[in-house]
Amino acid sequence: MTPKEYAMDRPAQAGSVLDPVLRRRLMAVLARLPRQRLESILAQIAPDVEIHPVRGPETGLVMVRGRIGGGGSPFNLGEATVSRATVRLSTGEIGHGQLLGTDRQHARLAAILDALHQRGDHQGAIAAFITDSEAELAQAERRQAEETAATRVDFFTMVRGDD
C-alpha cells in the first residue's frame, strides 16, 4: 500500500488565515453540541463537500489532570475516552475534530466543519452557527445555575429574647 498522498504544496489561501480565538470557539461548540446539530449545519452549508481522511476517525484516551490542592502542581486524575479525526477537503484545507466520548462520526463531522471554516466561503454561516450554538449552550447552563441558585441557603439570625 502506498502512503496517503495529497497535494502538499498547496499555498495558504486568502481567507484561510484563521483567528485562533474564533476557531477555538467553533471547536468548543462542536465538542459539546449533539451530533445531530453538526449533521444539520453541514447539510445546510455544504452537503456535497468532498472529504479525504488524514487521520482517524479514531477513539483513544486522554489522561485528565487535576492540580494538587486545586491550584498546585498537576497530578493524573484518570483517563477519559476521546474521539478525534483529521480530514482534508479537496481544496486542501485540513480540519481537526476532537471531543470526549466514543462517537467517531461526531469527531469526523467536527473535523469537516473546522476545515470548511478555513475555506472562507462559509465563514458567515459558520460564525452565525457559533453564536447561535453558544447562546443555546449558555441557556442550558443558565437554567442549571438558576436551579442551583434556588438551593442557596439564606441564613437569618434568630432574635434573642430580652433579659
Binding site: P3, K4, Y6, I94
Partner: peptide
C-alpha cells in the same frame, strides 16, 4: 503552511 501540510502526509494509511 507548506510545512504544516507536509506534516500531515506520509503516515501509515492503515
Amino acid at each position: 503552511h507548506k510545512n504544516s501540510q507536509r506534516a500531515y502526509a506520509g503516515g501509515f494509511a492503515d
